[in-house]
Structures are given as C-alpha cells and as structure tokens.
Design a protein around this nucleic acid. Structure first.
Lengths: 261, 261
DNA sequence: GCAAAAGTGTTCCGACTACACCCATGC
DNA sequence: GCATGGGTGTAGTCGGAACACTTTTGC
C-alpha cells in the first residue's frame, strides 16, 4: 500500500516516518456562567452552507504547520471573543469517519457539494479543548465572528454530528472541574462574595448539590480564601464580605485530592 | 499561505477542508502488575538506529487511512503481546516540534540520517493510550516483536524525549484509575483472593496507602464482589476465599463517584 | 417592623483509622 | 506448638448533612 508497511516490517521500532497524513481539527467547548440569569452558556458557531437550514457546531479550526495544538485552541478563542481571563485544557481526541457533511447530507437529501477533494470517507481527527471564561469578558467580537453566539445549555440547537459528543464530554468535564479543582476562581472576578461562588456552583451542578451554609464553611476551612475586609451590598439583605483567592495559600494543596462541593 | 486562509475568511464557520496535513502517531503506555514480584511493569521498545547507542520508547505506530485511533492502539497491542484481557483508554494528545530524531541528534552528535523528507521541523501529533494487561497474558510475542521488553517502573532506562511525558502521565492515570474505578478487576484472574487485590493495590500505590483489614471491609461493603465459596491455599496460613467480580451488582454504581482504596 | 440575604452554631450520624483479636493451615 | 497469612470486631475520631438561629441591611 504505502511505504510504512515496508518501514514497519524492516525496523519494528519507534515510528519515524511513513504514515498517512491527516488534517487535524481543534474544536473548543467554551463555557461561561451567567450568574445573574443563573445559567451555563456554551459558544456555538453557525454552519452556513448551500442549504437553507442552519446547523450549529462548536468553534473550531484546522491546525497549521508549526502551530501547537494549544496554540490553535487559543487562536480559536481570540478569533471569537475578547476574553483575557480564561481556563483552557485539552479534553479528548475524537476521530470519526462520519464527516460533518455526512450528517448534512443524510438529513437533507442534497447531492454532495462540489468541495473538491472532500468526500464522505474523508477521515478527520478532532482534538477538543475545554474552556471556561468570565461572563463579563465573554462578549463576542463583532468583526469576523458573524454567526457566533452563546446558547444556554438547556437550549442548545441540534449540532452537527460529532460536536454533540464533544459538548457532552465538555460539560461533564466542567462539572468535574468544579468539584475537584479551584477552576471557579479563575473565572470569578478578582474579589467576590461567597454567595457568588455558590451561585456559580449551583448554576453548573444544580440547586441541590449542597446546602449554602455547609458549602460556605467547607470552602472557608480549606484556607485559601482571604477576607478583604470590604463589604458589598447587593440590594436588600446584609452586605456580603468580599473574598480573594490566595494563590500562595493554595500552593501546598495543589496536588492533593480535594472536594470543593 | 494555503487556501485555508481564504476559506476561513470567506466562511467563518465550521472547518470543512483546507488544513495542513500531519502524521498521527499513536503511542501506548502499557502497564502490567506482577503480583509475585510485587512490581509494576511497562512495555518498552528499543529504538534501533544507525548509532551504537540503544534508546527506548513506548510502542507506537502511525495511524493509517481509514483506521480509527482506538483501532491503531489495539493494533499496537496485538503486534507486541498476546493479551486477551486488557483495559485500554485514551490518555492525552501530545504535540511537539522536537522530533524523536531531534533527541538522538543532540545526544550523539551524528549527522541527520538520510530518511528522505524527515526533518527536525517535522511536526508530529501523538495520541497516547493507556493500557493495563494481565501479567499472565503479558508474554511478548516472539516473531515481529524483537526489541520489546517489560521494564519495572523503577528501572526504566532513558526514553527518547517525548515518551517520558507519556509514561509519567500514564502512571498517574494508572494510580487514579485504581483509586476511582474498578479497573483492577479487569486485569485480575476470573476468581481471586482479596489479598491478591490488596497486593495489586500496594504494588501500584505503595505499601502505606491503607491497612489490609480496612481495605478488605471497604471493598466488601461496596457489594460487587461475590464469594465463590471456593478456598485456595497459598503456602502456609489459612486458605483464602476466592471472589468474583459481579458486573450486575456493579452496574448501578457505575456512574457514582467511588473510592476504592 | 418586616423581608431578605449573610453568616454562625449545634446536633446527629455515618465512615474511616487504628488497632486488637480470632481462625485455619503447613511444618 | 508455632509461624504465617486470612478474616472479624471494636473504640475513637473526624467530617459532612441538616437545620435552627443570629446579624445586618433595604424598605
């Protein structure tokens, strides 16, 4: 077939060269939490094609030569939104021989578009990344990001085939991250009230994941939140203390298993 | 540069075609546990090249057209060992512009080999998989697997650059999997003693992770180990009961967070 | 005063730790 | 008997769940 067969038979050692070549797609599951409206949002991109039906997918791009995977993931972010404070990590690598177009065709009975060398058998590899951004900074860039919008997680429109898997996996990661890592503080403002932390957690994990007062004391007992002394009043009720995440105090706990719920 | 720029600017939607192409390597971190000698082993492959120094790497291969990532990972397994009972899952996708050859060159001051189109800038993507196999079945295949051998984790020789990262990550995953999933029972014999389970855990997690009697009662309380009624005597001492993993009893617990230590 | 939100304290209970102790076998 | 490994039981302790209660604000 190709010369990798010869190569493999001759050497039987670490692969060096001779494999088939693939396009590598990076797709981001980008989440944000709107505390005021108490909901989780995901960034979607409209697929515009020759048909009249709009379908949606996660923002993605092809990896370029000389570009790292993470760099490609960052590039996706910066092309869509203007977020400075974000958390980004690799999610999973999906493969699939069902091309995105596969889905389009099967649903709409259209002839294949004349995209040149694109075929239904065109294999693809999607390295997906998980991102969480501050909602204040989650504004979509005007120019060049047409057809990009935030969707509440419970109102996500039908996605092109493989993006559903990525979104499911990403949401699962989001919940796990909240429970086992301090990722929440990367995406909260510099100073925040404990109630805001609680709002973030309930928006993602549901109302009944924990009692507020227990959540509160557990969080404080961990010892990496420092009281700024400042108070802030949000409408009626007693003013809340503003806290700050203390990275130095967290340092020794970094590699310990910890439950944040 | 390439036509993906045009494509991106024109459409700003889901990627369809036009990216650069990459060779995709799949590399497996394959572990096994020798209960008798009480140690964890990893499968390494010797890199044979033009120099006189042997370096080692993890068994890997290039993904072929029409082959899924997981299929490639399985192919690596079947080319090296004859294991029927194994656990396999994706680990992480590494990228790197330091080609394996990069390392060889920098250490040994050799001129680049004439491998044709292979350059130091040759980018590569390595999708790594984590595997755990039964030690009884972990015998290396004779023909075609020359230069393949098991190494105890604490005696691993220097690996070619990027394989170290994969091995580290794989070992971390192994420990996590033992603690939070019943993966141990996929790799133990059909029936086993509780002491064997404990041996497996201590070999991986260290001697002091838990007291045997507490480990024992915690494990039994979970309720998915059924006593076969059979006893087995290993030398001196009271004979041990043989247990069996009860998949039906475990089913309802599958998605619950659980600690197995 | 009253509602609303923040913050504190207290009781109950299950789970994990650290042992001590009993049981069955080989020699 | 006695060493060896398997198996059981228990007292102490820690931490989370549930919930009552207090504090401080707006109106």
């Amino acid at each position: 077939m190709n010369d990798y067969l010869l190569k493999n038979d001759r050497d039987r050692d670490c692969p060096t060269d001779g494999g088939d070549r693939f396009q590598i797609e990076v797709d981001n599951a980008i989440f944000s939490v709107d505390l005021d409206r108490h909901r989780v949002l995901v960034l979607l991109v409209r697929q515009r094609n020759s048909s009249r039906f709009d379908r949606w997918c996660l923002p993605g791009t092809f990896v370029r030569l000389g570009e790292s995977l993470e760099a490609a993931a960052h590039r996706i972010m910066s092309e869509r939104i203007r977020a400075r404070n974000l958390y980004l990590e690799q999610l999973y690598t999906f493969d699939g021989h069902s091309d995105p177009l596969d889905d389009r065709l099967s649903h709409q009975q259209l002839p294949p578009p004349d995209d040149g060398n694109l075929t239904l058998e065109n294999p693809y590899i999607s390295v997906s990344y998980f991102a969480l951004v501050r909602w204040d900074e989650a504004r979509i860039m005007g120019e060049g990001a047409i057809g990009t919008s935030w969707y509440p997680l419970n109102q996500v429109p039908p996605l092109i085939a493989n993006y559903d898997r990525i979104l499911q996996y990403g949401y699962k990661r989001l919940r796990n991250k909240l429970e086992y890592s301090p990722v929440a503080f990367e995406v909260l403002p510099e100073t925040f009230t404990l109630s805001e932390v609680y709002q973030l957690y309930t928006a993602v994990l549901g109302e009944d994941f924990s009692d507020y007062s227990n959540f509160r004391s557990r969080l404080l007992k961990l010892g990496f939140l420092s009281d700024t002394g400042q108070k802030v009043s949000r409408g009626a009720g007693r003013p809340a203390s503003l806290y700050r995440f203390d990275a130095r105090a967290f340092e020794p706990l970094k590699d310990k298993p910890m439950v944040f719920i």
